[in-house]
Each structure stands twice: as structure tokens, then as C-alpha cells.
């Protein structure tokens, strides 16, 4: 049976992981390759590396980092951040990334989704959507949640699905960092109306939250950052818990 995936997300700035970690056995806790390897040893199913560097030099550092990750990590990984055009995608896939995640660029230029799917295949194209509940429904935001758009979550997700996206990475800005669980109702709606896998993001605080994202939220994968980085939830323990709860996971 196809396993539900557990995905740690690492924020990268100037080639280093931004958030601290409580891992003790790492040579260098800030090294994204060492951290990724540790996660993969613990049973992570995929990794997401998000480049939050703004500078041009930082981009080059990130590309070099992607090459090192590809050489050393034996599970699939997605990279995102700063991807604006096809040649950014080409550069990162050539460096060895398995998938790319696009967010603001897709909203500004939806054709980018079609182009990535056509040139490299749908499976490499993850569309990340940051959304927040408003009086008129779930609205999409740009630039890491700073700019509100006119787009609504469900319509936009359906549109990128039809344009050839391979997966949706949905972050609820209302739930992100609050640690009270994922946005399960919205997740379930997405999962039931889309033909492509949905990755839940934002809100994980306890192991039960992952279970609920898979059962009530019908998500195909769950992404989290701080609960893994700070060792609050060890990945292996989480997967054993999910297995006991009757959820199909890779052990």
C-alpha cells in the first residue's frame, strides 16, 4: 500500500540551516547536508529545502548546496525559494534536485506551471500555496504571506492541478507556528477535489496532529519543521505511532 509521507522542511540561508536543532550527534548542526542525512536515517520519506536567501550570491551558494545534497542523500528531495523562470528550474534539477516547489512565481505567472510540466514532467512540479481564512473564504498570499492576492485557495489549487502541477503543498498561515494541528477541513476539501497528492503544512505540534491530517484531512503527506528540528517529535517514534493508529507508513 502506498505509504503516507513524513517530510521535514529545512529553511536555508546562505547555505546554512536557519532554525537551530537539538541533534547532538551532528558534526555541524547548521549543515543542511548533515541534518538531511540525520533525518533520512531516522525515517524521513522526503526532504524539502527552502532557500530563503535574497541575494544573487546566495542563490549560487544554494545551487552548490543542492549538488552536495544530491551526492549524499539517498531519498528524494524538493527545493524551493527564488524560482521565477524555467531556467531556475533547469539549474536546480541539473544540480540533482528531484522536484522544485514554486509559490509566488506561479501566482504571478501561472503559465510557469504548464511550462515546467511540459519540459520536465508533472512529477517535478510542486506548487506551494500559502493561504489564510478570510471573511470571504480561504485566500492565497504572496511573498511568504506578506501580500494578499485576489485568488482563492480552492480555485487556485484546481487551476494548477489542471495546468499540470504534480503536487500541492498547502500551508495554512492561520495554523503555521501555532502547533494546534493542521487545517484538516481545508485539506480534506483539496484532497477530494484534486487529482494530485496534497501535502499538509503548518500546525504540527503533537503526533496526533499528523494522524488527523492523514485521517480527517486525507492528506498524502505531512510536512513540518520545528517539531523535528527541536527534537520534540522524533520521526521514527512518529511513524511507529502512525503505524499503530492504522496509517500506512514506511517503517
Amino acid at each position: 500500500m502506498l505509504a503516507k509521507r513524513i517530510i521535514p522542511c529545512l529553511d536555508i540561508k546562505d547555505g546554512q540551516t536557519v532554525k537551530g536543532t537539538k541533534f547532538v550527534n551532528l558534526r555541524q548542526a547548521g549543515d543542511p547536508v548533515e541534518l538531511g542525512k540525520a533525518y533520512s536515517e531516522q525515517g524521513a520519506d522526503e526532504l524539502v529545502y527552502l532557500d530563503i536567501t535574497a541575494s544573487h550570491e546566495g542563490r549560487k551558494t544554494f545551487t552548490d548546496l543542492v549538488k552536495r545534497i544530491a551526492a549524499q542523500i539517498n531519498i528524494p528531495f524538493t527545493v524551493g525559494g527564488g524560482i521565477n523562470e524555467l531556467k531556475d528550474v533547469d539549474r536546480l534539477l541539473n544540480a540533482g534536485a528531484d522536484k522544485v516547489s514554486i509559490n509566488s512565481a506561479a501566482i504571478r505567472n501561472p503559465m510557469l506551471v504548464d511550462e515546467i510540466a511540459k519540459h520536465f514532467g508533472s512529477q517535478v512540479c510542486v506548487v506551494a500555496i500559502d493561504a489564510r481564512q478570510t471573511a470571504t473564504g480561504w485566500k492565497c498570499y504572496l511573498n511568504g504571506g506578506r501580500v494578499e492576492t485576489e485568488r482563492y485557495l480552492y480555485e487556485w489549487a484546481k487551476e494548477v492541478n489542471d495546468r499540470g502541477a504534480g503536487e500541492i503543498l498547502f500551508t495554512s498561515m492561520d495554523h503555521d507556528g501555532v502547533k494546534t494541528g493542521y487545517a484538516n477541513e481545508a485539506l480534506a476539501h483539496l484532497s477530494e477535489t484534486l487529482d494530485i497528492p496534497v501535502i499538509a503544512s503548518g500546525g504540527a505540534g503533537k503526533m496526533e496532529h499528523f494522524r488527523d491530517a492523514f485521517t480527517f484531512g486525507k492528506a498524502d503527506a505531512a510536512l513540518a519543521a520545528s517539531v523535528f528540528h527541536f527534537g520534540e517529535i522524533p520521526i521514527m517514534k512518529l511513524k511507529e505511532y502512525l503505524h499503530e493508529e492504522g496509517i500506512s507508513v514506511r517503517l
Binding site: M1, L2, Q123, D220, A221, R250
Partner: peptide, 27 residues
């Protein structure tokens, strides 16, 4: 059942030397 089939799944009834030493359905 979404297409592509993407992610971790098990291999069963393994019959080739490629799977030597496998004692359960691996992902």
C-alpha cells in the same frame, strides 16, 4: 488512486537475486 503513482510502496513476492536477503515486504 492518483496518477502518477508517486511515493513509497512495498514490493512483494520478490523472486530475483536483486532482492537477496529480503525477509519482508520492503518499501
Amino acid at each position: 488512486d492518483k496518477v502518477p503513482h508517486m511515493g513509497w510502496n512495498t514490493i512483494e513476492n520478490t523472486l530475483s537475486p536483486l532482492f537477496k536477503g529480503f525477509d519482508k515486504d520492503e518499501y
